[in-house]
Amino acid sequence: MQIQMNVNGADRSADIEARTLLVHFLREDLGLTGTNVGCDTSSCGACTVHVNGESVKSCTMLAVSANGETVTTIEGLASGGEMHPMQTSFMENHGLQCGYCTPGMVMASVSLLKENPNPSEAEVREGLEGNLCRCTGYHNIVKAVLAAAG
């Protein structure tokens, strides 16, 4: 099937199998491998991207369902060589170790603050419930998101 979408500011089109998951389209057709796959049950959130500005687990969406939409991946978050404030905050607060969950965690966190610019610690924890991390114990992730909120 022919699809087209705007990904990180560029119009992309491709001929793909109808069953192709959005995450596999991004990773394997567009080479945007920053978005990771951590599970097969939509549980871990490693594949979180933004579709029209909203957090989406890209393993749960068919690429054809994103036809005509605007997608932002972790590669599209930094601009002009400067990391996004959320990326900087993760670095400054040691909110990542192995870094595998990190792209999804950052994308979910950006989305969280967009919906709730001044969350409490409990609201951050609740807001990130769909994103699993095995390294950090979440302490520094929560700290990073709260710091980014200012």
């Binding site: 945007l32 920053g34 978050l77 990391m83 990326q87 670095m91 990542l96 870094g99």
Partner: peptide, 12 residues
Amino acid sequence: LRKEDPALLTGE
């Protein structure tokens, strides 16, 4: 701060 982080945070 870790020198590993920027590449991990940007998906590189």
